[in-house]
């Protein structure tokens, strides 16, 4: 049978992108157009549909900026602005990336440590697990300013408070995944270790740690995305001078919707890249242990 164009993978991707873009343009016309009509009517000026359509896509502070405006702003602040400048989106991205990575590493270490404790100690499971779950039911937006203020009182400012908030969000998926993963060892393998009289730590390093890895990587993908959200949220209420969060905040102060959308686009791109990097690590590691991927 001849392969049709509809079977191609790229075809689906292209169609999807076109559909999203078309929908976006339609929504931009509707939202910005309504605003323009209201303005004309308030000023008692004449308007035609053709002028509205033309203007809706180049409003300076649109309700919903169309894709080309967002992309132009993104391109300008990424490629046509010096990286050291405060107007550079690359600069802000690096600021956010810094606390994201620090928070992610701290969160992973904390998450794994709690999981190990829970798996090896029944008391710890009963006493600790409710707190772990409760910690995630508190809205991060509510607790983020408190963390910043408390840490500021002991002279911890800058990247640390933001990283702590990232950690707060990212340890949870790691703990949940690792508890499951560390318990996922094959029963036969566990009995094998038992017949050889392996100690807990030997069983951990020879068996449990490895059987947990697929779970760990699944968790890490969630955790790194959560760490990014944490970093951005941490930049919102703290009046931070840099970071994608501060770009969002200043954009909303001054009604710079295009700036907000460009920062959002950048955040999405960053999140996507971070998850891809984790997946790449996963693949390399699995290949090294000889499992065909």
């Amino acid at each position: 049978m001849k392969e049709s164009i509809f079977d191609k993978k790229w075809f689906a991707i292209v169609v999807f992108i076109i559909a999203i873009t078309a929908l976006w343009y339609a929504a931009a016309l509707w939202m910005n157009g309504n605003q323009l009509v209201k303005t004309y009517e308030r000023k008692n000026q004449e308007w035609t549909y053709s002028t509205i359509i033309a203007e809706a896509y180049q409003v300076k502070r649109p309700m919903l900026p169309p894709p080309h405006q967002v992309f132009a702003q993104w391109y300008k602040t990424v490629f046509d602005t010096k990286v050291t400048s405060k107007r550079s989106l690359v600069y802000h991205t690096m600021v956010t990336l810094q606390s994201t990575m620090l928070g992610f590493v701290l969160g992973t270490v904390l998450g794994v440590a709690i999981a190990i404790g829970i798996v090896h100690n029944r008391t710890m499971e009963m006493s600790f697990m409710p707190w772990v779950i409760a910690s995630q039911t508190i809205p991060i937006l509510a607790i983020a300013p408190i963390i910043v203020v408390v840490l500021g009182a002991i002279n911890l400012t800058g990247v640390v408070p933001k990283a702590i908030i990232s950690m707060y969000l990212s340890f949870f998926p790691v703990t949940i995944g690792m508890v499951k993963g560390l318990r996922s060892s094959d029963r036969m393998h566990l009995e094998l270790m038992q017949t050889y009289n392996a100690s807990n730590s030997q069983t951990f390093w020879m068996l449990r740690w490895y059987s947990a890895q697929p779970f760990l990587f699944a968790s890490l993908k969630v955790a790194i995305a959560a760490a990014l959200v944490g970093a951005i949220v941490a930049e919102l209420p703290t009046g931070a001078q840099g970071g994608l969060g501060s770009r969002l905040l200043s954009g909303s102060y001054y009604g710079q919707t295009v700036q907000i959308w460009a920062a959002l686009f950048m955040a999405a791109l960053l999140g996507l890249s971070l998850v891809t990097v984790v997946s790449l690590f996963e693949k390399i590691l699995l290949r090294r242990r000889g499992v065909s991927v």
Binding site: E191, L192, M193, T195, Y196, Q202, V291
Partner: peptide, 27 residues
């Protein structure tokens, strides 16, 4: 004891040599 199970129960992330090393490493 040396216990041989119904299935080989080799650790998939270890080579054959490293699998045989498991009881030796433990002791």
């Amino acid at each position: 004891y040396g216990y041989v199970f119904q299935a080989a129960a080799l650790l998939p992330w270890r080579t054959i040599k490293k699998n045989c090393a498991v009881p030796l490493e433990i002791s």
